[in-house]
Each structure stands twice: as C-alpha cells, then as structure tokens.
C-alpha cells in the first residue's frame, strides 16, 4: 500500500514535523507582520492547518484514527471562528472604514 511505502521511502515523521513547524511559523510571522485584520484571520487558519497536518501525520504514523478525528473537530471550530470573526470585522469596518488592526484598540481606555 501507499502508506507503508511512504515511511519506507525515506520520508520520516521528522520531515512532517519540520514542515508543520515551518507552516506554523509562517502563520506566526504573518500575525506579527501584517496589519490587515482579515489577513490576520487567514494566518490563524494557516496555523490551524499546520497543526492539522502534524496530527494527520502522527495519526498515520501510529496507525490510529484519533488524530484524524481531532482534525475534524479543529475544522469545526475553525469554521465557527471564521464566521464570527469575519462578522465582527465587517461591523468594525462599518464603524471605522478600515481593517487596520491598530485602530481596533478602542477597548483599551
């Protein structure tokens, strides 16, 4: 089968760990670097997907389905988060006419 040959063909679980870490760090970098609030939400999705990739890799590695079901639940939470986050952003845009994250510190004072 494909699976047995994947881990025997030289692809190690460490490769997937590094790939998932790299994707996660790109998401972190994006959250720190970008100022557009919608892109910040997209970077959060990217980080969630990096975790999903690692969960699926370990689920395959250990031959257990639990990891893949966790991915399923993460997708559920991500969908709910994107819906509410985007609707809040649309409301904020209507009030401030901008999606700049630096303008959204109004709760501070």
């Amino acid at each position: 089968m494909l699976l047995a040959t994947l881990f025997e063909s030289g692809v190690k679980i460490e490769h997937y760990m590094v790939l998932a870490t790299a994707l996660f760090i790109i998401g972190v970098f994006g959250v720190l670097y970008r100022k557009n609030a919608i892109i910040l939400l997209m970077c959060i999705e990217l980080m969630l997907n990096a975790v999903n990739l690692l969960l699926v890799a370990f689920s395959t590695y250990l031959g257990q389905a639990d990891g893949q079901l966790f991915v399923f639940f993460i997708m559920v939470v991500a969908a709910a988060e994107a819906t509410v986050g985007l609707s809040i952003l649309v409301l904020l845009f209507r009030n401030t006419r901008s999606v700049d994250i630096r303008l959204f510190n109004k709760l501070k004072n």
Partner: peptide, 30 residues
C-alpha cells in the same frame, strides 16, 4: 518567527519517537 522556528526544531531534535505502527490495518485508518 525565526527564533521560534529554531527553538521548536532544536527541541524536536531531542524528541524520542515511538516506532511507526504499520500493519495490515493501517491503510484503512483514514
């Protein structure tokens, strides 16, 4: 970001991993 990447990769280098479980059931997991 770069510092975080280095720290995580350095931490993973020392990780002790379980041996992969590949039997006749494992292609059906997903």
């Amino acid at each position: 970001g770069g510092g975080l990447f280095l720290v995580v990769v350095a931490a993973m280098r020392d990780a002790i991993l379980a041996t992969p479980v590949i039997d006749e059931n494992s292609p059906k997991v997903g």
